[in-house]
């Protein structure tokens, strides 16, 4: 890698090859898209894609923190749906509820995250199992709440504004929110004690514990953050579609994991950069949009998602060989 004969800019030498490949893939996809359809490279279409990417980006932020810890959060789908449904339900309670709709939705997501965190950090249950179980419990709660039908409550104007409005002309608010959350994530992961602890735990929780990190508190906090972000994305998505629906979260779990993995974050934890996740999110969104432009059926999309994750993992995510 360090070949002095080829002068490379410092940022390229330091960058993770996975991130560079992800950005290269984005360029290739843009090229394919522009060949396939002339409307692809217009600012309007790309901004629309950015808006769609923002929802995934917010979710992937939480997913990434969990994966950095070496855990996994499978409760994303119903944390999202619960956030959306509870936000809309609060809105039906009158002006006060309407004003508190988004915070209330996020709070519900954080509650799910808290359950996950307690189970993983304090009860030491494998994260996959706890989050799968809390996903099922949340689904059960929501089925009881809605009676099995799509809820009638509509999204508040504030939710719609956050998801579809434009504070800065031309730039969707959703993208702005993702930018804020992304900046916080970059700073939080790079500069804060929390971020250092997350990387430390991902590499070796034992070592982090011995160095005096309150590993259990950090893990719990990370799950709360992930749950809150999923629910926040859910409320935004409800604003985008102007109401919540039963299966709105199902199509986000796999893309979120795919985006994080494509961005070069190690599935084993402890290694990864948020810039990579941004690239992964844009890559997954573009891939989805090209597949839908090509009118590929849902079946093809599922297969391609699965294949992409496995191929990328085979390239970067392999565990060391036995001894």
């Amino acid at each position: 890698m360090a070949n002095p004969a080829i002068p490379m800019p410092a940022f390229l030498r330091r960058a993770d090859p996975a991130v560079l490949i992800a950005f290269a893939c984005i360029l290739v996809l843009l090229l394919i898209g522009s060949i396939y359809s002339p409307g692809f490279l217009t600012a309007k279409y790309l901004l629309q894609q950015l808006k769609v990417a923002s929802f995934l980006g917010i979710i992937a932020t939480g997913t990434m923190i969990i994966i950095l810890l070496g855990h996994i959060d499978l409760s994303v789908p119903w944390a999202m749906t619960m956030g959306a449904m509870m936000g809309c339900a609060a809105a039906a309670l009158g002006p006060v509820g309407s004003a508190l709709a988004v915070p209330f939705g996020i709070l519900c997501g954080m509650a799910i995250g808290l359950v996950n965190g307690l189970g993983v950090a304090y009860l030491r249950i494998p994260s996959m199992i706890v989050t799968l179980a809390s996903n099922a419990v949340t689904q059960g709660l929501m089925v009881v709440y809605t009676g099995g039908y799509a809820p009638q409550d509509a999204a508040t104007p504030a939710m719609r504004f956050l998801a579809t409005g434009e504070t800065i002309p031309g730039l969707p608010n959703a993208a702005l929110i993702w930018a804020v959350i992304g900046t916080l994530a970059i700073l939080g992961l790079r500069r804060s004690v929390f971020g250092r602890a997350v990387f430390g735990i991902g590499n070796s929780e034992r070592a982090a514990y011995m160095s005096g990190v309150g590993t259990r508190r950090i893990v719990m906090l990370a799950f709360v953050v992930s749950g809150g972000l999923s629910a926040f994305a859910g409320t935004l998505l409800a604003g985008y579609a102007s109401k919540a629906s039963q299966s709105m979260g199902d199509t986000y779990l796999l893309p979120a994991i795919a985006a994080v993995v494509l961005g070069g974050t190690s599935i084993l934890g402890g290694r990864g950069s948020y810039v990579g996740t941004i690239a992964g999110v844009i890559l997954v969104t573009l891939l989805q949009s090209i597949l839908s432009v090509m009118q590929l059926p849902e079946a093809g999309r599922q297969i391609i998602h699965g294949l992409v994750i496995i191929v990328m993992l085979l390239l970067y995510g392999r565990t060391p060989a036995a001894r």
Partner: peptide, 10 residues
């Protein structure tokens, strides 16, 4: 040599 969780999700 991949993790069973993510492999089988995919």
């Amino acid at each position: 040599r991949l993790q069973p969780i993510v492999t089988t999700i995919a």
